[in-house]
Design a protein around this nucleic acid. Structure first.
Lengths: 145, 145
DNA sequence: TATCCTTTTGCCAGTCACTTGCATTTAGCG
DNA sequence: CGCTAAATGCAAGTGACTGGCAAAAGGATA
C-alpha cells in the first residue's frame, strides 16, 4: 500500500468522498514536515484550485480528524496530518511548539499532554472539558540567532 | 489606596504615561470578571474613544505585563488584568479555559502550568522556550445544557 | 453504461480582527 | 509657560476566513 492509496483510504474510512481537491490537500499537508497554514496549502496547490474550497476542505478534514490543527502565533490555524506513517499520532494528544519569530509550528510528538491536565481536578464538575491544548512558545533552532 | 489610584500607579510603575485612554482601558479590563476581547473593550468605552487607539493600548499594556492575553476559540485575543486585587496572578503562570460555545475565556488561577511543561525536557536544547500555554477547551457552566 | 441525487467546487462578495501612515493633540518635563 | 517625545484620531488597507448560489461531479442505483 503506497502513500497515495493510504490517503484515499483515509478519506473513505472517514466516510468522505474521494475528490481531487481533498486528495491534493491531504497529500500536501501529509508530505510537509511542519504544520501548514491554509495560505501555505493554497500556495502549494499552485494550480487553479480555489482558495475558498481549500478552506472548506481543511475544515472538513479537521472535523473528521484526518487533520488536527493549532493556532500559530498570528492566530491563524496550522494543520498537521493525523496519520503519520503507520501510526496515528492524534491518538495520544501531544504538545505543539510555536516559533514566535518565524511563525512556524511543530508537533512535539514526544511531549504528551498529561491526563490530569486534560481534565484538571480543580476545575469543578460544572465544566465540560473537550480537550486541553499545550502550546510551547519560543524560538526554533532555525531562527535561533 | 482605592482601585483608581492603583490603576494609575500600575501605569507609572511600568514607565507608561497616565493617559485617559490607558486608564479607561485598564479599568475596563480590571473590572471585568472574564477576560475581554478588544471589541468588548471598545464597546465598554462607549464614548468616542478610537478603536485603533484601543488596539494599540491593549498591545502596549500587554507588552508591559499589566495585562496578559489568550486566544479565544475564534483566534482573537482576550485580555485579563495581571494585577487582581493585591496579588499579581501573572507571577504564577496559570491555565485558561475557553468555552467553545460562547467564546468566553476564564483564567484558571488554581490550575498552574507545571514547570516541567514550561520547559519540556524532550524538546532539546536548540529550542529557546519563552513560555508555555495551557488552554482547556470545553463548555462553561453558563452554556452547559 | 446511463441516470439521478447529493455533495463538492468555483466564484462572487462580505465580515471581522487587527495594522499602517500621517497629521494633530497632549502628558510630563524643565 | 513652553517644549518635545509620545499618544491619539482618522482614513485606508491587510489578511484569514465565511456565506450564498449556480455549475460540476462523485457514487449509488437501475
Amino acid at each position: 500500500m503506497n502513500r497515495e492509496d493510504s490517503i484515499g483510504e483515509q478519506l473513505r474510512d472517514a466516510g468522505l468522498r474521494r475528490t481531487p481537491v481533498r486528495l491534493a490537500v491531504l497529500r500536501a499537508v501529509t508530505s510537509s514536515r511542519a504544520p501548514l497554514g491554509a495560505p501555505d496549502v493554497i500556495r502549494r496547490l499552485a494550480d487553479g484550485t480555489d482558495a475558498v474550497t481549500v478552506y472548506r476542505t481543511l475544515n472538513t478534514l479537521a472535523e473528521h480528524k484526518l487533520l488536527h490543527r493549532v493556532r500559530g502565533d498570528d492566530g491563524a490555524w496550522r494543520y498537521a496530518a493525523t496519520a503519520v506513517g503507520q501510526r496515528q499520532h492524534q491518538e495520544h494528544p501531544h504538545a505543539h511548539f510555536v516559533c514566535d519569530t518565524c511563525g512556524g509550528v511543530e508537533c512535539l510528538d514526544r511531549v504528551p499532554v498529561p491526563d490530569e491536565l486534560v481534565r484538571p481536578k480543580d476545575l469543578g464538575r460544572r465544566y465540560d472539558v473537550t480537550y486541553a491544548e499545550l502550546v510551547v512558545h519560543g524560538v526554533c533552532p532555525k531562527c535561533h540567532d
